[in-house]
């Protein structure tokens, strides 16, 4: 009895996780796939089988197209900026012991601030009449009138990106710092003996050695950035017009505001396919880059 139990212990240990994965990913995906062929609403699930009508509709849905393009623009822009600044800052901090202790703790703050609170902070900062940004821009004579940052079609998206950059740059900074700390010391000592310049050491030693890890950080952050929802929901609700419409938010709108769960299901499947393709391409791309570096 005991021996059999012992034999099945490893399986027993993963059983709850297996069940959770069924409940939270496999069953929902089958459900969504099923519902995507129907004309369902939130009140009448699995109503009226209509085959690929929802998918056909999706390909002519301009807002959906916009939301996909916006998601990609958002994710690639913020991830590039965050990884870039995160790396520069981590690099600058390498030799500053005193500041590094403080910064490690402070860097956690934006990352763990509730997104709803982040949204409120930036809503206040951007507010045309009561916000700090317009106040100082006007006071210092940098702008003549008040700028409605979140209400302007061309400024709303960059404004949201700035809030996201505030939240996530410290995260990239922490990861880059760990990557830099993990580098071997010997090559540096050799370079010191040879009297190489800072820039030269950076270009020839640090960058090639740390590049693989930086790429991982970039991909990791990119995959999270593709899920963006909270800031959009609370700062602009996809507007003005559809200028800040992103995939997650559009799915939410279709399913939970327009109650078209069937159509929302079809869009969900398309988004999933897109993200899987993107993730595969990026991992392949990463492998190609790594081979080149070697």
């Amino acid at each position: 009895m005991n021996a059999t139990l012992e034999k099945y212990t490893p399986k027993l240990m993963v059983l709850p996780t297996f069940l959770i994965l069924l409940i939270i990913s496999l069953v929902p995906l089958i459900y969504v796939l099923g519902i995507s062929f129907t004309n369902s609403t939130i009140a009448k699930p699995f109503n009226d089988f209509i085959w690929f009508e929802n998918y056909k509709k999706a390909f002519t849905d301009e807002v959906f197209g916009t939301s996909l393009v916006n998601t990609l623009i958002f994710a690639f822009t913020v991830t590039t900026i965050q990884t870039f600044f995160g790396f520069i800052l981590a690099f600058a901090m390498q030799r500053e012991r005193k500041l590094s202790g403080v910064l490690r703790t402070l860097a956690l703050l934006p990352l763990f601030t509730p997104p709803v609170a982040i949204a409120m902070i930036w809503r206040l900062i951007y507010d045309p009449n009561q916000g700090m940004l317009n106040y100082y821009l006007t006071k210092w004579g940098l702008t003549s009138g008040v700028i409605p940052f979140l209400g302007d079609k061309s400024l709303a998206f960059p404004s949201i990106m700035l809030a996201d950059i505030w939240q996530w740059t410290p995260f990239c900074f922490l990861l880059c710092m760990a990557a830099l700390q993990s580098l071997p010391r010997d090559p540096y000592e050799a370079a010191m003996v040879d009297g190489a310049s800072g820039w030269y050491v950076f270009k020839r030693l640090t960058l090639p050695m740390v590049a693989p890890q930086i790429i991982v950080i970039f991909l990791f952050r990119l995959l999270i950035a593709l899920k963006v929802f909270d800031l959009i929901y609370m700062l602009t609700f996809g507007g003005p017009g559809n200028s800040t419409q992103v995939a997650s938010f559009y799915l939410y709108r279709v399913s939970f505001k327009q109650f078209q769960t069937g159509y929302g299901g079809a869009l969900s499947i398309l988004v999933l396919i897109l993200i899987s393709v993107l993730a595969t391409l990026l991992t392949k791309g990463r492998e190609a880059i790594l081979k080149r570096v070697e």
Partner: peptide
């Protein structure tokens, strides 16, 4: 199993929100 766990993490939660709501 590890791949499934990672895939679940990468998946945007909004995608499964309708069935989770229903469940």
């Amino acid at each position: 199993l590890p791949a499934w766990i990672l895939g679940t993490y990468v998946m945007p939660p909004i995608v499964v929100s309708i069935p989770i709501f229903a469940m």
